[in-house]
Amino acid sequence: MTEHVPYVVVGAGAMGLATTWQLARRGHRVLALERFARGHSHGASHGATRNFNNAYTAAHYLDLLALARAEWDELSRTTGEPLLRLHGLLTHGDDAVVAQVHDALVARGERAEVLGAVEAARRWSGMRFGGDVLFTPDAGVVRAAAALDALEVGARRHGADVRYGQRVVALEERGDGVSLTIDDGERRYDVVADTAVVTSGAWTPGILPPSFPLPRLTVTEESPAHFSPVSPDARWPSFNHLVARGTYPGPTYGMPTPGEGVKVGFHHVGPVVDPDHRTFRPVPELAAALHDYVAEWFPGLEPDSAEPISCTYTSTDSEDFVLDRRGRIVVGAGFSGHGFKFTPAVGSVLADLATDDTARAAEAFWIR
């Protein structure tokens, strides 16, 4: 028997659960389908923390960030689960970028302060700095694992049907809706939805019809690591370090993760992979470079204490997101390693696109 639903969301990681929550809280009946088990580590949504990083200059990201902050707060209120830990963010390594981000944030009424390297090292003794440092106190981390739980709880409270272990093996738009065939491991069944939202991360290209005009998405396996602090009493902010090109593989980012240490990683330097055939191990050369980087720039961390993490980036060529609609199919994809902080705002935008075929996201997110 074929099930009929108004809205189906394919992929129930962070973005899919956020879309499901946003649709359900607006009173819509929605079915969310996730190929893997709850809490899996195959994609990009697992782990305890993600940077809540506000160091942007582009208006479309700052607009999305403002919406995300409001929606994180709303989700926290409705579930009673605090999801943001705002211990501040440091951005350094390029004085020109530091100045540009400072000016963009101040122009919008955000708190931002530029410090010299000596003053920054005095405040955060576990880190080293070589130039101007931007401190934004209203940034920090998203408690990522808790956020996924809160989104699912919130969605279910509003009547959403969230199913795990449900692999979509066919998706086709036709005159009366979007037809999906799903394999749950024991049987195959069909669903027809008025509108489908595809938020399947690295698996998005394989789910959409071949004719769908999706831009190129490149999947890489990234390997940040947690490092142990030298002193358990040290203060740790989140951070972006715009490392000079050629000295290390790429810029770095990081944040404290209670119980696990301080997360440090290179941004977007990992090898291209098939998401179904990953090693879940760091590239030795990149792991060695990360060790050397921590030894040079973090006097407050033990460089030999690395506990590697494996995750994927699914990136567009521009590293801008894809938030758009064609026909009855809405797509959220290409979050390029910097999407998690925006999760509930992305869900809101995708819900707008799903419920109003005249709605548009910011132009930077359109399919070209």
Results as ranks from 00 to 15, higher is better:
358 T>I: 01
239 F>I: 00
96 A>Q: 11
81 E>R: 14
142 V>G: 00
329 I>Q: 05
283 V>E: 15
346 V>M: 07
274 D>Y: 02
199 T>N: 13
278 R>Q: 02
88 G>I: 09
340 F>H: 01
41 S>Y: 13
140 G>Y: 06
230 V>P: 01
217 L>G: 07
33 L>P: 06
179 S>N: 09
144 A>H: 07
24 A>I: 00
242 L>C: 08
116 G>Q: 08
115 L>Q: 06
221 E>P: 04
98 V>I: 09
151 L>Y: 01
207 I>G: 06
262 V>H: 08
292 D>L: 07
361 A>P: 03
252 T>Y: 08
190 D>V: 01
235 R>I: 09
113 E>I: 11
345 A>C: 00
261 G>W: 05
99 A>V: 10
273 V>P: 07
223 S>Y: 10
357 D>V: 01
226 H>Q: 02
322 V>M: 13
180 L>S: 03
265 G>C: 09
140 G>I: 04
2 T>I: 11
44 A>P: 05
235 R>C: 04
126 G>K: 09
34 E>H: 01
320 D>G: 04
5 V>F: 07
62 L>E: 05
168 V>P: 03
238 S>F: 04
62 L>C: 08
150 A>Q: 03
191 V>C: 03
315 S>K: 04
289 A>V: 12
4 H>L: 12
246 G>M: 11
8 V>P: 10
36 F>M: 14
193 A>C: 11
18 A>F: 14
339 G>E: 15
65 L>P: 04
351 A>Y: 06
157 R>V: 02
71 E>V: 00
50 R>V: 05
28 H>W: 05
8 V>A: 15
256 P>Y: 07
358 T>W: 13
353 L>H: 03
207 I>K: 03
84 L>E: 11
54 N>S: 14
18 A>Q: 03
60 H>I: 00
43 G>Y: 09
274 D>H: 08
318 S>W: 06
268 H>E: 14
44 A>H: 06
203 W>H: 06
228 S>N: 01
156 R>V: 12
144 A>E: 15
164 Y>R: 01
16 G>L: 06
305 S>N: 10
257 T>F: 01
340 F>A: 02
130 G>E: 14
224 P>T: 06
120 A>V: 09
125 S>L: 11
11 G>V: 05
97 V>N: 08
138 D>T: 13
248 Y>R: 04
346 V>E: 05
51 N>I: 14
16 G>I: 05
72 W>Q: 02
331 V>M: 02
248 Y>K: 00
49 T>W: 03
267 H>L: 11
159 G>V: 06
32 A>Q: 00
318 S>A: 14
219 V>D: 07
28 H>P: 13
114 V>E: 12
158 H>Y: 13
240 N>L: 15
285 E>W: 00
59 A>T: 14
74 E>F: 10
204 T>A: 09
94 D>A: 10
60 H>M: 06
10 V>G: 02
158 H>A: 13
308 P>S: 00
224 P>Q: 08
349 V>R: 08
66 A>Q: 14
186 E>D: 15
259 G>Q: 09
195 T>R: 11
282 P>A: 12
209 P>C: 12
55 A>K: 00
342 F>I: 05
296 E>V: 07
217 L>K: 07
336 S>F: 03
